[in-house]
Design a protein around this nucleic acid. Structure first.
Length: 280
DNA sequence: AACCGTGGCAACCGCCACTAC
DNA sequence: GGTAGTGGCGGTTGCCACGGT
């Protein structure tokens, strides 16, 4: 039996909460969410913390519009796997299942509306592009006859291989691109491999991949403090709230502190900076 | 300027799977 | 083997910004 905890916060996260979560994930890793939720004093559930981290705070995440390649890949993977958003997300470095899910919903809604209105593919630039990109893939795949499929059907255009599609090079595309064709090719290769052996990555592997693939293209903003001989860097948040972080640490169970503080390389810069701040 | 519809996104909920005891 | 705790995933909801009227 689990009692519903009183005082559990819900709703949008504040910058201070983000900062605290970031710090505690840095200290304890991104696995023990319930523990992090407790010791951080966030008054959030572990689930909520995990979700916030995975969908928003993780340094490997990309922000911004999906590239055409990504859109194409989402369509293709969805046609293969259905609503396996997490699985699909694994093939799009820096994108979360939530993001892809949201994109898909929007996409499907657009498709449904166009279908409803019987619009021509030229009704909107982005949609027409998506339609032309999605049809070849989907139509060529063994798709179960569902209502969903009908969203793709824009009137039986000639089918071309997805690999042969060409997309206009735009500034935006290159800006957001995380590797472009290489990523797509890599993902498609992995799809083939999975077909053969179902080699499913663990989340650790995924994040490692992301870290590697994003190393040169994504430069997460970091705070970097260098004061009083101590250097501290952390993922950027709009307003660092050291008093909150430190306050939480001070309130941590003493035994818990003993368990983790001596072994955490990341803690000491935080600690030193905090102490320096407090003592002036 | 006010209202309305829509899209995009963040976050919650419920279910399931896994693991430790 | 049963149970509780926890994490992960997919579905859903609600808020907010923006554009059109």
């Amino acid at each position: 039996m689990k009692m519903v905890q009183e005082g559990i916060r819900k709703g949008p996260w504040t910058e201070r909460e983000d900062f605290k979560l970031n710090c505690f994930v840095g200290l304890f890793g991104d696995r023990r969410w319930d523990f992090i939720a407790k010791v951080s004093g966030l008054n959030r559930t572990g689930k909520s913390c995990r979700l916030r981290w995975v969908n928003y705070l993780h340094p490997g995440l990309k922000r911004g519009k999906m590239t055409l390649q990504e859109e194409r890949l989402v369509l293709e993977l969805h046609s293969k796997w259905g609503n396996r958003w997490s699985r699909i997300a694994h093939r799009l470095p820096g994108r979360t299942d939530n993001e892809i899910k949201n994109y898909w919903r929007t996409h499907m809604r657009k498709q449904a509306q166009e279908k409803k209105r019987g619009l021509s593919p030229s009704s909107s630039s982005s949609n027409s592009c998506l339609s032309s990109a999605s049809n070849p893939t989907v139509n060529s795949l063994p798709f179960p006859k569902t209502g969903e499929e009908s969203f793709y059907d824009t009137g039986g255009h000639d089918i071309i291989a997805v690999d042969s599609l060409s997309f206009p090079k735009t500034g935006e595309e290159s800006f957001y691109d995380t590797g472009g064709p290489e990523i797509i090719a890599s993902a498609e290769k992995q799809i083939e491999e999975e077909k053969a052996g179902e080699n499913v990555y663990s989340m650790d592997d995924i994040w490692k991949d992301i870290a590697l693939s994003e190393e040169d293209t994504i430069k997460p903003a970091y705070y970097s403090f260098s004061e009083g001989g101590s250097t501290f860097s952390h993922h950027a948040l709009a307003s660092p709230s050291w008093e909150y972080f430190l306050d939480s640490l001070w309130r941590m169970d003493e035994e818990v502190s003993k368990m983790f503080l001596p072994t955490s390389d990341q803690f000491f810069p935080c600690y030193e900076y905090g102490r320096a701040s407090l003592t002036g």
